[in-house]
Each structure stands twice: as structure tokens, then as C-alpha cells.
Write a protein that binds this DNA or RNA. Structure first.
Length: 490
RNA sequence: GGUCGGUUGGCCGAGUGGCUAGGCAACGGUCUGCAAAACCGUGUACGGCGGUUCGAAUCCGCCAUCGACCUCCA
């Protein structure tokens, strides 16, 4: 009873015990990327956060359908060309077909997600592939009387909606406040109220991404795709909707309104929002021009980066902070994460070689239980990691002969670390290469170190140190152990 | 201007009304031919001012400061 998964629901602003709508099954929808630029560190945060949730839900026994969309149409550009589709604009600049741009950046996103060991979702629907479904939602909202047509566009009537249902409950906004803080937007004079938002937009002549509809040749509104696609694949009401905090308003608020207007009921039961990555205390974002792309992290090719970072370092770095906290990027923090992760991964190797004793001086059951408690507490990965490091101490103590572990406990501990470190946290040991070349290479290094052993046996320290120092210079880490040596490539 | 959220030790980052978070870095020790690794041990923290309380970094108020959203955004 006490050990149930709790999730912080933005809607209620508190942690709630997670109970799925249909026992044993979970419907999860997450706002994916808008594919008009290279994937950056900001994209990695929700990807890793909800990947963890996806993995954990499956681990605790749920059958999960995880839907994460690709937004390839429908968002406005933020410069002078108001009303022009972001993707269409980029396409004209680069003289590419819009779908070509979409494909390039979708591929880039997929490639980077794979490097981060983010599992592909169950379904990855594209907005452009669901125009018909979106038009159907527009019709439903019109039929329900919560939208109106104006000059070929269809707008959602926020004020009318707010008379029947609460509007702004997710983001804590009040209609009156919103009315006093609006700004100029394209087509403002077509709207009854500045609060209204387009659910179908008539395309301007230069707008090349367009679809025919009874209202006009145009394109679906900016928030509509998630409503249409989540409903199609998860039903009118589903369990969890995730996304970045910056989407809370207006995007998710609009989704709530659209669903309720179209289907007459609440669509989402648990709203989850991950916080932002910051750079020098400022949000890192494509539109702010301070985003470092994932490719740049992996290659180290960026003025702000001291070095290249392994994708697993990025992943571990994110897991070291709670998903609802902002996470400040710095080389120092990333390198601390890198070293910590190395220590953790090394311990998993040590664990595999451990010998069991007659009894345990360590409490494995307590350790594993603590980790589950932390994970169930709104996916508290930093606490879980703290416990995993306590386990690292145990493992190293046992390896040092300063503690002992029973056969049963050892088996449990191995299974536990395999599950948490690899299956749930999704970490991978870097540089696990194989093949004939590697085997020959390994043997050659072993041979050198064997020569060093011989030199040591003869107390020929000069030769022994020469071999070690030269190998160290080349980039190896040489360690003497009780029964010989070990080495690795740094 | 409105709404919301931060402010924790050298850095990152948890958490809690009284009981060591953790990682990285630092220092001392054990081990080692010397190292490395590992292990053991050690230290300064909770933005400021008031208040509630036996006791607050943790609750309340005020102030300062930073940020997010209100426009596409992960």
C-alpha cells in the first residue's frame, strides 16, 4: 500500500497515487519535438524523463502504450513573418521541400535519441499524417458550439468555453488576467477575442504546407495535433500526458479545452511536466539561440564545451537531478556526472566477479527496498542514485574482503543492479567493442603487462615503470591487483 | 504588470520541523616497490530580517535576488 507509484500531477499540484484507467494498462502521451532544427540538450530532458517513466511502468508490470508525436506542421514563426509556418519558412530559406526538412531533422532526432538509449515509443505519429483526424476534431468543436469560422479560419471560442468549463486550471491562469496581457498576432481582427486561438488556419499564398478543407486551403491549429492523435491512439480519456513545463500554457491548456469541447470530458488524468535545462541560469532553447545541440555535446565541438561528452554522461547527468527541477548545465557538473557514472558502472563489473560467503554483513533487501521507495516517489532518481552509490560502497567493501555477502544476497544484488542501472536508467557501458581486431589488441596489451609483471618479479622497477608510464601516456589506465593487473583504455 | 517556481557547503544536486542525502573536488590514513584503483576517516551549508515552536535550513510574514510562463518552445 505504501509502496505505490506516486506521480506529481500538475493539475492538482500534488503527488497522487497512480491508478490507471484500465487495470494493468497505461496510456502515455508525450509532446515530441518540432522538427525544424537539430536536436539539442533541451530535447533530451523530456526524452530521458519519459523514457524512464516508460521503462519503470513496464518494469512494475504495466502494459504501456507510449505515444510521442513528431510535430511537422502548424507552428508559427516568431519573427517578422507572422503567420507563416515555421517549417515552411525554413524550407524556403534552404530551398528544400518542407517534408525534406522534416525528414532531415526527424532523422537527426532519432539518431540522437538512440545514442541516448531512449527507447522508441510504441507509436510516433506525425501531425502531417493526421490532417483528417484534426479536421474531424475541428468539426466536433464547431458542432459543440465552442468555435466559429472567420475568413476561412476556425477559432476556438475561449470565453464561451470558459462559461461552461474551467479554463486555465492547469496553468493557474484566470481569464481576466489573460485578457489584460495579450499581444498582436496575425489575424487578431478575425477573432472575437484575443484569447481565442486558431484550430484551422487559412493559408496565405506563400504558405506551401496546406491541405484542403471545407473552410479553406490551410493547415490545422497549433495545439490540435496532440488532441487528435492522443485521442486516436489512446482514447478520449487516457492516463498520463507529459511534456516540458514551457508547454503548460498555452499548449496543454488548449489541449484540455479542445478535448473537453470535442468530447465533453476530461482527456488526461495525470499531467506531468519536466523542468528546463538552464545555461548560466537561463533557459536553454532553440528560440533563445543558446541551445547546444546533442551532436555538439557528443563531439565536443562547441565554444562552451571543454570536451566531448558521452551520451551516457548526458543521460546520467539528467538522472542525477529530479525531473521537476531545473538543471543547470556546466562543464564541471557534467564532468562530475561522468566520473560518478564511471564509478557506478565499474562497481557493476566488480559485482559480477564477487564471491559469496556464508553470510551477509550487508543488507541487500533494505537497499533494494529504498530504491523502489525513491522511484515510487515521483521518480526520484537522485535519491535512487544516492542509494545505488551506497550499494557501490558495499560492493567495493566485499571485493576488498571487508564485508561479505551470502549467495542468495549476491544473486539478488546482481539482478537488482542489472535492472536498475541498465534496464531502468538505461545506462550502457561505453566502448564495448568486439571483433578479431579487438582480441588481438587485447592480447598485445596483456603481453606487455605480463612482461611488466616479470620485470616486477625481478625487482626491475625501471622496466616495470617504463611499460606502465608509456602505456599511460598512450592513454591506458594500468592497475595492479592482488593476482596480477588490469587495464582499460581511458 | 499578472501567474508560478527557485535561492542549500568549492561545484552539481536531494531532502526534512529534532536523526549522515549522494556525486564531484579537497584533506588525512590503509594498501602498494612507487603509483593507480579501492577502502576508511574528516570539514564549512541551508539568501536576509522578523514570527510560530521546547526546537526551523524545513512552517508563517516581509524583504532581497534569480528564473519560467503569459508568443513558437522540451
Amino acid at each position: 500500500m505504501e509502496n505505490q507509484l506516486q506521480i506529481y500531477n500538475t493539475l492538482s499540484r500534488k503527488k497522487e497515487v497512480f491508478t490507471p484507467l484500465h487495470p494493468g494498462k497505461v496510456g502515455l502521451y508525450v509532446c515530441g519535438p518540432t522538427v525544424y532544427g537539430k536536436a539539442h540538450l533541451g530535447h533530451a530532458r523530456p526524452a530521458v524523463t519519459y523514457d524512464l517513466l516508460f521503462r519503470y511502468l513496464k518494469h512494475i508490470g504495466y502494459k504501456v502504450r507510449y505515444v510521442r508525436n513528431i510535430t511537422d506542421v502548424g507552428h508559427l514563426a516568431n519573427d517578422a513573418d507572422q503567420g507563416e509556418d515555421k517549417i515552411a519558412k525554413k524550407a524556403r530559406l534552404e530551398e528544400l521541400e518542407p517534408m525534406e526538412v522534416v525528414q532531415i531533422y526527424t532523422n537527426d532526432y532519432h539518431k540522437n535519441m538512440e545514442k541516448l538509449n531512449v527507447l522508441p515509443p510504441s507509436i510516433e505519429p506525425r501531425a502531417t499524417g493526421h490532417i483528417i483526424e484534426q479536421i474531424e476534431v475541428v468539426e466536433k468543436i464547431l458542432a459543440a458550439g465552442f468555435a466559429y469560422e472567420s475568413a476561412g479560419s476556425v477559432y476556438f471560442d475561449v470565453e464561451k468555453y470558459a462559461k461552461s468549463y474551467p479554463y486555465g486550471e492547469l496553468s493557474g491562469r484566470k481569464i481576466e488576467d489573460l485578457q489584460s496581457s495579450t499581444r498582436e498576432l496575425d489575424g487578431q481582427d478575425e477573432k472575437h477575442s484575443p484569447l481565442d486561438f486558431a484550430i484551422w488556419k487559412k493559408a496565405t499564398p506563400e504558405h506551401i504546407m496546406r491541405w484542403p478543407s471545407k473552410w479553406s486551403d490551410g493547415f490545422p491549429g497549433w495545439h490540435l495535433e496532440c488532441t487528435a492523435m492522443s485521442c486516436k491512439y489512446l482514447g478520449e480519456t487516457f492516463d498520463i500526458h507529459g511534456g516540458g513545463m514551457d508547454l503548460t500554457f498555452p499548449h496543454h491548456e488548449a489541449e484540455i479545452a479542445q478535448s473537453k469541447a470535442a468530447y465533453g470530458k476530461d482527456s488526461v488524468r495525470y499531467w506531468m511536466h519536466n523542468n528546463m535545462i538552464t545555461l548560466n541560469g537561463q533557459k536553454m532553447g532553440k528560440s533563445l539561440g543558446n541551445a547546444i545541440s546533442l551532436d555538439e555535446f557528443f563531439s565536443g565541438d562547441h565554444p562552451l564545451l571543454d570536451k566531448a561528452y558521452d551520451p551516457m554522461t548526458i543521460r546520467f547527468f539528467m538522472l542525477m537531478a529530479h525531473y521537476r527541477s531545473t538543471l543547470d548545465f556546466s562543464n564541471e557538473a557534467l564532468q562530475a556526472a561522468e566520473k560518478g557514472m564511471e564509478r557506478l558502472l565499474k562497481a557493476t563489473e566488480t559485482l559480477e566477479k564477487l564471491n559469496s560467503g556464508d553470510s551477509s554483513t550487508v543488507n541487500i533487501a533494505e537497499l533494494t527496498a529504498k530504491c523502489y521507495v525513491a522511484m515510487n516517489d515521483d521518480l526520484n532518481t537522485p535519491i535512487t542514485i544516492a542509494h545505488l552509490f551506497d550499494g557501490v560502497k558495499m560492493i567495493n567493501s566485499i571485493a576488498d574482503g571487508k564485508a561479505s555477502i551470502s549467495a542468495q544476497d549476491l544473486e539478488d544484488l546482481k539482478a537488482f543492479y542489472s535492472t536498475f542501472v541498465f534496464d531502468l536508467f538505461g545506462l550502457k557501458k561505453p566502448g564495448e567493442e568486439s571483433g578479431a581486431n579487438m582480441e588481438a589488441f587485447d592480447s598485445a596489451i596483456d603481453l606487455l603487462l605480463q612482461l611488466r609483471q616479470d620485470a616486477k618479479a625481478n625487482k626491475d622497477w625501471a622496466t616495470a615503470d617504463k611499460i606502465r608510464n608509456e602505456l599511460t601516456n598512450i592513454g591506458f589506465v594500468i592497475k595492479d591487483t592482488k593476482d596480477g593487473f588490469s587495464w582499460e583504455l581511458k
